[in-house]
Design a protein around this nucleic acid. Structure first.
Lengths: 169, 169
DNA sequence: TATAATTGTGGGTGATTATGGGGAAAAATG
DNA sequence: CATTTTTCCCCATAATCACCCACAATTATA
């Protein structure tokens, strides 16, 4: 609901609706409170794309990631193809799956964040959390950490443009 | 096939767990107590995927593994396909088959862990055990061992981002 | 602007779950 | 064959979890 007071061009319902191939399109950032039971409300405009099961897991840079099932399936398939005879295959498998958690939205549109993941992301109970839409999935951040990471990334972009050259975007 | 020490998960010829029907999906880690009768409760959310017979056996890294029957069949088939002339084939056969034990959940959702397997995993009676979901099967760990292994794996991932990149996620 | 609908958030309550223990059946032992 | 031991099933219970309802605040609608 509250959009951190900034102009958000992706606010409209139209843009968040499905486009053709039924893949979700999550855009924008929102701040919600994690209640004392570890529940986090998912923005109402994202809920249509998150019916049925979803997967919450550990993301990079100490944030959490929420995947719709179809996106998760792609990842799980790749991880499942790793050889269990290779220690590195076993490690990746464990890192990916052991901290993942499948969940469903309750009737109020919330999900339960397991304690372990909450702590990994530096989130307490009865605290704010930032939900960031990244087109195909969501990220959940502790506000301070999001602030900081976001700033550092902008800085990186400004100071060292060469870093971004070979991305072909 | 070249093996220059680099990890390419998709080039392994030894043992790759295949991608099957998306029915089973074991995710997350849970701590339960192994009671003085050697029984271990399986998390309720996993039980629907473990009706009928399951297989408990030794895993790599001194943990135990629990397979639903269809997944076990796949693994057994792959191990059987390994040439007995290859020392690795012989080793894997012994690890997987020699102490395998078929079991069923009792009406309270528990399985009985045979003594030999318990000892292999460093588990006593009336102790805690960590049950780790790895999507298609489960692992059972002595808490200290899991703690240590997990920490080392995280480290490995942090120090070696190339491991992630092979996954193309 | 007034009214209706939706959304975020909190709390209460019934259902589920983890886990210990008792007792019947089966197996082992002498 | 009798007795002890082991194995396994089922019940009981306390704690946890998830569902549901309610309210307040915001947004949409007329």
């Amino acid at each position: 609901m509250e959009e951190n007071g900034e102009f958000n061009p992706f606010h409209s319902q139209i843009l968040t609706a499905t486009v053709g191939n039924a893949s979700a399109m999550f855009l924008g950032q929102y701040t919600y409170t994690l209640d004392d039971k570890g529940r986090l409300t998912i923005p109402a405009r994202f809920r249509d794309e998150l019916t049925g099961s979803i997967v919450v897991t550990r993301g990079l840079d100490h944030c959490l990631t929420i995947y719709p099932m179809d996106v998760w399936d792609e990842i799980a398939q790749k991880v499942n193809a790793l050889p269990i005879t290779d220690p590195r295959g076993r490690a990746l498998r464990r890192v990916f799956f052991a901290d993942a958690s499948s969940a469903e939205l309750d009737r109020q549109g919330r999900i339960l964040i397991p304690d372990r993941l909450r702590e990994y992301a530096g989130l307490g109970l009865t605290t704010e959390a930032v939900i960031v839409g990244l087109d195909r999935f969501l990220e959940i951040w502790a506000p301070e950490r999001w602030e900081e990471t976001n700033a550092r990334q902008m800085e990186m972009m400004d100071e060292n443009p060469a870093l971004w050259e070979n991305l072909q975007i």
